[in-house]
């Protein structure tokens, strides 16, 4: 059984996907690594798929590791950061 995860897009991901989020399916007990795999299939551009490799997933309070369970129905994908 699968569940839907809404992934909020930021930074350079908005360039190839201006809709600001994507919905993907992962297994019910899926982990972040499963989400990463689902995102690779969902992203349309080669640049975005390349950016995915260097990107992290996060909730509103914490950055997740690939082995972490996906804790919520909505998470964010964070490309490499450069504030300031």
């Amino acid at each position: 059984m699968n569940r839907s995860i809404n992934v909020r897009l930021f930074g350079a991901f908005r360039q190839s996907h201006p809709e600001s989020s994507l919905t993907v399916e992962i297994p019910e007990q899926g982990r972040v690594a499963d989400l990463r795999q689902a995102m690779e299939a969902a992203l349309e551009s080669e640049n975005a798929r390349s950016l995915l490799k260097a990107s992290a997933f996060a909730t509103d309070t914490a950055v997740l590791d690939d082995q972490d369970p996906v804790p919520e129905q909505e998470v964010s994908i964070l490309p490499p950061v450069c504030g300031g």
Partner: peptide, 12 residues
């Protein structure tokens, strides 16, 4: 152009 930055990814 979006500026390249520091990866937050912890593992993979």
């Amino acid at each position: 152009e979006w500026i390249k930055g520091h990866a937050l990814r912890n593992s993979g």
